[in-house]
């Protein structure tokens, strides 16, 4: 692997975390972002589980699409195949973790069933294929790096937001804004801060 490839992989990784953040820029995975970001450790557990599933799901769906669906003219079945593959993968992962890695299962296990219908996971498997269609150099390795970066970006957003929410708990909020509205306004402010990353990655490398 030459320096140029490594450089481009680092750029893809950083872009996935900062400028193309799944939660704050692309609006994918909003439900867990709003639902399980109340406590820091639940937020971290959920994001780690999402990252793991994202990478594994991309690792499986990418070859499946390229070598099975496209050659047979079945690309239109993408949605239905991908969601079933993800559902099966999540189930498999849960079983394997429970059997062979109980400590990891205790940490991530309860989050896994929630991930099947997480749009960030299905979204990443489809978006990497879209990117690959636009840019032929965006292959399997790049897709995996992008998925991993997206997962880390999800983690960053969740952790930042969990911090903001813990501070919010002690604030005196107007009655009408208690609960979800103030959470969304806070999310809006966190998203403003992420706007600042636009163009940063291109400038870095």
């Amino acid at each position: 692997m030459d320096a140029q490839t490594i450089k481009s992989l680092v750029a893809i990784f950083l872009a996935a975390i900062l400028t193309e953040n799944y939660v704050l820029n692309k609006f994918l995975g909003i439900c867990p972002f709003l639902g399980v970001s109340k406590k820091l450790d639940t937020a971290v557990g959920m994001s780690c589980a999402v990252t793991v599933v994202m990478v594994i799901a991309t690792a499986v769906t990418w070859p499946l699409y390229m070598f099975l669906l496209v050659p047979n003219g079945l690309a239109y079945l993408q949605t239905i195949v991908f969601i079933l593959v993800i559902a099966a993968l999540v189930q498999l992962l849960e079983t394997v973790l429970r059997k062979y890695m109980p400590p990891l299962y205790n940490a991530l296990g309860i989050y896994l069933p929630l991930i099947t219908t997480n749009c960030a996971v299905l979204g990443v498997t489809m978006l990497v294929l879209e990117k690959g269609a636009e840019d032929p150099s965006f292959g399997y390795l790049q897709s995996l790096v992008n998925s991993f970066g997206s997962g880390v970006g999800f983690l960053v957003a969740m952790v930042l937001f969990a911090g903001v929410r813990e501070r919010l708990e002690n604030c005196d909020i107007p009655e009408t804004f208690k609960g979800l509205p103030i959470t969304l306004v806070a999310a809006s402010l966190v998203a403003v801060s992420f706007l600042g990353f636009n163009g940063v990655v291109d400038g870095l490398l």
Binding site: L34, T176, L180, A187, L195
Partner: peptide, 30 residues
């Protein structure tokens, strides 16, 4: 039009809908 505006408008609409509803408050979470 940017993501922060989406969160903001959504928050405002939920607050409004909560205020107008019978319970008079917005939902706690998702």
């Amino acid at each position: 039009l940017l993501p922060p505006g989406g969160f903001f408008v959504f928050g405002m609409l939920i607050a409004l809908a909560g205020k107008l509803s019978k319970e008079g408050k917005a939902p706690e979470s998702t």
